[in-house]
Design a protein around this nucleic acid. Structure first.
Length: 534
RNA sequence: GCUGGGUUCGUAUAACGGUUAGUACUCAAGAUUCUCAAUCUUGCAAUAUGGGUUCGAUUCCCGUACCCAGUACCA
């Protein structure tokens, strides 16, 4: 989520300014290579509608050779190896960097020793005098080590006691004294790759990046990056550091595991890691991409107005970095759902019916298009996701089998074998009903009262027989008139009928249900219920 | 620990020295309805804290507390 939001803000900013959004894969850590990650990122961005102008071709592949549309290729840093070494050498020649020959073990030992004394080891102007590097070793020894060993690095020679004054588009003016900074590794001989710091500055320069919008975790590195631009004598881009996304409860930033623990996705798409664990994705959980983009946009940014729902184009038009907040944003899963609900409502009944259809078909239920559109119109206001449709309206397609609360109450009821006489909706003929509609009733006993049952059955039967034009309105009128005319208790009759027809104590209007399931099915469900609940 | 960043209702945020501190989500109540949902109305609920500066501070400055990040041959 955090990564997508960062990409989104970059995209919005670039598009608003008429610039290009470039994808560059920063894979300079050979030890942390994750198969499939690159493809995942591009697919996720694509799902969100964040389409790069440069760096990825029409087939969603990272471009490896330069062309007119992709002048800065290759876009994987692992394929730009040769580029960086020369820049590292340039810094050394200019006195901004040096060779360091300390082994990882030696450095770890130094850290441990410092820690034992209650200090923190830091590779800087002071400590570098006592370590093994080209600043202290004799020239011929340096030469020998460079030629004969292969685990040395190039480190940045951090100036001593200098104030670096920086400007951040979001945070304003920041000053840091270099005495608190260390000599960061810029280039690693072992795999002939730069670290992030060098690669990022070099590539941003080469790729003509004008604005760097990235996560707050990079703020502490900003002085180094400023100094690197200075060392190269390059014009630096402007920087903006985004606030972090925090976990919904407690402290700390949002992490991969929070989501599944708390029941919301933290990934845009399902992600299967190397241990075989799957993390939920927004896409698979039923979120609409525009809703996901919208909710992400509002996490750390606001338009300055009270508008909350934005299309991508509206976001591009309204986005501005000075409306990005400085403090971390706790993610609120409830609000995320609310966004999806709003987007679901904005969709047409036809569109939603088309999305619902395959879900029904998977259950072996075939319904005519027009009827499905009618159902959707009835239930869309009650749903957050398309997948909710089934939970809400399954009984329109298949007859209830069990009346849950009664089973709980009577104990034995649930052990009764399923009655083969259970009415089957003709539209659900193909459906293998080993699993049927959910039964939400908590009040079966409350609604299943002898006097109500008799009255309700009588009323339904009368309506089924008398109504000539089988429509929601005519059914409703006929039903109400009958109930009133016979001085029956309206609520009791209706609730009892609902229990019979849907198996649940709450749900759609009786007339709606009767209209959809039809006369025959209405009566059949009555017979079944009377037998079952007797 | 050190360095940097941050702190307005539970959450996201608005108010860029002067407002009864607004809005949305959540929650509660009422209206409506055959139930539920939806909808509408109402309500609960915040400027971390101590000092300044100022006629006046949510807003500017300093301290404290708390939170976050960085402190890797990771990004």
């Amino acid at each position: 989520m955090g990564g997508v939001r960062t990409a989104l803000y970059n995209y919005l900013y670039a598009k608003q300014k008429g610039g290009d959004f470039i994808i560059r894969i920063e894979d300079t850590d050979s030890h942390r290579f994750v198969p499939g990650a690159e493809q995942y990122i591009i697919e996720a961005l694509n799902w969100c509608g964040i389409i790069p102008d440069e760096g990825v071709d029409e087939n969603g592949k990272v471009v490896e050779t330069a062309s007119e549309k992709h002048p800065h290729a290759p876009y994987r840093q692992s394929q730009r190896r040769e580029i960086y070494r020369a820049y590292a050498e340039q810094l050394i020649a200019a006195g901004w960097a040096y060779y360091a020959f300390d082994s990882s073990e030696a450095l770890e030992a130094a850290r441990a020793a410092a820690e034992a004394e209650g200090r923190t080891f830091i590779y800087n102007a002071e400590s570098r005098q006592n370590l093994r590097n080209s600043l202290v070793l004799p020239e011929n020894e340096v030469k020998r080590l460079l030629e004969q060993t292969s685990d040395w690095t190039v480190r940045f020679k951090m100036p001593q006691d200098t104030v670096v004054a920086m400007d951040d588009l979001i945070r304003g003016h920041i000053e840091v004294n270099t005495s608190t900074l260390d000599d960061k590794v810029l280039w690693k001989r072992a795999d002939e790759l730069p670290t992030y710091h060098l690669a990022n500055i070099v590539d941003d320069h080469l790729m003509e990046i004008t604005e760097v919008i990235r996560g707050e975790e990079w703020l502490p590195s900003l002085p180094l990056h400023y100094l690197l631009y200075q060392a190269f004598g390059w014009e630096r881009p402007q920087f903006a550091h985004l606030p972090l996304l925090l976990k919904p409860v407690g402290n700390g930033k949002l992490s991969k595991r929070d989501g599944d623990k708390m029941g919301f996705p933290v990934f845009p798409l399902n992600w299967l890691n190397s241990e075989g664990e799957t993390y939920h994705g927004y896409r698979e959980d039923g979120y609409f991409a525009p809703a996901f983009v919208n909710l992400l946009a509002m996490l750390g940014w606001n338009p300055g107005t009270e508008q909350e729902l934005f299309t991508m184009d509206e976001l591009i038009a309204s986005f501005s970095l000075d409306k990005v907040s400085k403090s971390g944003a706790k993610f609120n899963p409830e609000k995320a759902k609310w966004f999806n609900k709003e987007y679901l409502r904005m969709k047409s009944d036809e569109e939603l019916a088309a999305l619902f259809k395959p879900m029904l078909e998977a259950k072996g239920i075939k319904v005519e298009e027009a009827r499905l559109v009618e159902v959707v119109a009835l239930i869309k206001e009650r749903a957050t996701f398309v997948k909710d449709f089934w939970t809400i309206a399954s009984y329109l397609f298949i007859a209830p089998e069990e009346f849950e609360a009664q089973g709980v109450k009577a104990g034995a009821a649930s052990e009764k074998p399923v009655d083969p006489s259970r009415p089957v909706d003709p539209r659900a003929k193909v459906y293998d009903d080993s699993k049927t509609a959910p039964f939400l009733a908590k009040d079966v006993d409350k609604f299943w009262k002898p006097e109500a049952v008799a009255a309700a059955y009588e009323a339904c039967k009368a309506v089924c027989e008398s109504v000539t034009e089988w429509k929601k309105d005519t059914i409703e009128t006929a039903l109400e008139e009958y109930i009133k005319g016979h001085e029956m208790p309206m609520g009791k009759v209706m609730n009892c009928t609902r229990l019979v027809l849907s198996g649940a104590a709450s749900g759609l209007g009786i007339a709606d249900i009767m209209y959809f399931i039809g006369r025959e099915q209405t009566l059949a469900r009555w017979e079944y219920a009377m037998k079952r609940l007797a």
